[in-house]
Design a protein around this nucleic acid. Sequence first.
DNA 1: TCTTATTTTAGACGCTGTCAAGACTTTTCG
DNA 2: CGAAAAGTCTTGACAGCGTCTAAAATAAGA
Lengths: 132, 132
Amino acid sequence: MKDVISILRHCGIQPTPQRIAVVEYVLKNKSHPSADEVLSSARKRCPTVSRATVYNTLNLLVEKGLLAMQTIKEGAVVFDSNLEKHHHFIDMDTGRIYDISWDQLQVKGKEKLKEFEVTEFQVIMRGRKKKG
Amino acid sequence: MKDVISILRHCGIQPTPQRIAVVEYVLKNKSHPSADEVLSSARKRCPTVSRATVYNTLNLLVEKGLLAMQTIKEGAVVFDSNLEKHHHFIDMDTGRIYDISWDQLQVKGKEKLKEFEVTEFQVIMRGRKKKG
DNA sequence: TCTTATTTTAGACGCTGTCAAGACTTTTCG
DNA sequence: CGAAAAGTCTTGACAGCGTCTAAAATAAGA
Ligand SMILES: [Mn+2]
Ligand SMILES: [Mn+2]
Ligand SMILES: [Zn+2]
Ligand SMILES: [Zn+2]
């Protein structure tokens, strides 16, 4: 994986310590963190970083297409470093969100929806992750 | 459709004027309103109804299985009087949410997800509704 | 009626997310 | 190099969502 500084430079974003702290965490993280979790983690590396800067950086990353935003959980939007198309499974006990790769599910019938022009879709599943 | 008072009685919920105002609106509404929209509408019928009562009533209905809660839109949870299994289409221009009946789409492959026990799922689509 | 249980209300609270203003840093350029 | 400009960060305020509490209002029961 390319290092964070060159990723930012490549997108015309100046790599500041605060942004690096945010990006380092959020882009290497597969756990779909909320903005608040990103803030906490970024503060470990850069204790003075503010909430506004975290939101600014996250929104910037989303704008540049380096990060996806998902609204699949109550209470707060969640950020997703997985840029491939994929589906989601939400464990109802733990709240954890798991990625389900695109080709594991097949969805048929969208073409038949005459009134709707579907530009994106995903399957959202809820249940329990089996142990082990 | 059964009248609201007997629905409430049948579930052991005392039908008060406030609850009737809320339930009357939310159970007959196909437009996936937010709690705030429910509050506004309930106040037309019962101008003094409070925010807490609206939330209490909505949560009660969800608990009793008379109403579904969907977290598919940013900013606020949305309430769904359609209790049949179904999918959703979200118009990215207007924000409106449309129901897609269950048999219009087929989702295959869930059984093959060995690590996950799927108890519910739906397809969420985004795009534009065609005019006319 | 008196007593008790249920319901409603207003307001406070904590959380999410945005915004404006000023401070601070980094470039640009004389 | 120093001054001005541009870019960035922080703070604090703000608005909306959703929950909670305490007190008032209402209904139910004896
Ligand atoms: Mn955002
Ligand atoms: Mn709720
Ligand atoms: Zn994901
Ligand atoms: Zn629906």
